[in-house]
Amino acid sequence: MGAVSIQGLSVSFPLPGGGWIDALSGIDLAIPEGGFCVALGASGCGKTTLLNCIAGFIAPSSGRILVAGREVSAPGADRGVVFQKHALLPWLSVWENVAFGPLLAGMKRAERRRLAEEKLALVGLAGFADRPVWTLSGGQQQRVGIARALAADPQVLLMDEPFAALDALTREAMQEHLLEVWAASGKTVFFITHGVEEALFLATEVVVMSPRPGRIVRRLPVSFGRRYLETRNARAVKSDPAFIALREEVLAEVRASARDGAGALA
């Protein structure tokens, strides 16, 4: 159903001074239904471009993307997006923002309200329903963005560094929260981060990306998230020697690829 399949995807952008830059080159990636794929890499490695292609915001230069067996040609409600910058609508209240997808789908007001309150409780914002969104802190706004994506009940959840702007404590709580929501809903998730620890903790598969051209340099199946779901002890998982060893190994790799990319530019 919600499986994502990316075949031979390349994306090039024209440069202002003429010529082209290869943002993505020859990406092949399969995310099984219910999988949690995390794209990890330094800035400029094409992670966000890849997400924008799956979302349908950018058309591939070559290759194709299938979601639930259908080729992606435009944005759609089957793929919910959580943006780096929340992208909320300030003229709507918190709950109206959360229930914006159901509004577009024609759901009745009372039902929308109930759904919004349910999703707000899920992201720890119960009691904020009637507040104007611009009175919320950045972290709270980001959580409203997550509740909004969940309320539209997409098959695939696309998350572009959703926790980057949060403080460390909230970020950890949100990571744990996301794993619980993911486990309960069975949704397919594609998640972008530049945090190695975050990637290893959340993913069922980590793909390490490298810039110029943006490509996948390593695929790493992991299961720390499942271990967290069994034990509900995040610190124990993250301080596990196996976790730490893998974290350092991947971190070295990300650093090296970022350096190579910089070298290629110079």
């Binding site: 915001f57 409600a77 793929r79 997006v81 910058k85 992208a87 909320l88 003229w91 577009l104 909004r148």
Partner: peptide, 27 residues
Amino acid sequence: VAPEQVNAALSLGATRAQLLRHVILPA
């Protein structure tokens, strides 16, 4: 209108008319 707001509405299933009515006009 912020491009992110338009993209957000589109990925929530907005049609062109809904985009105009619910996003572009208020923005």
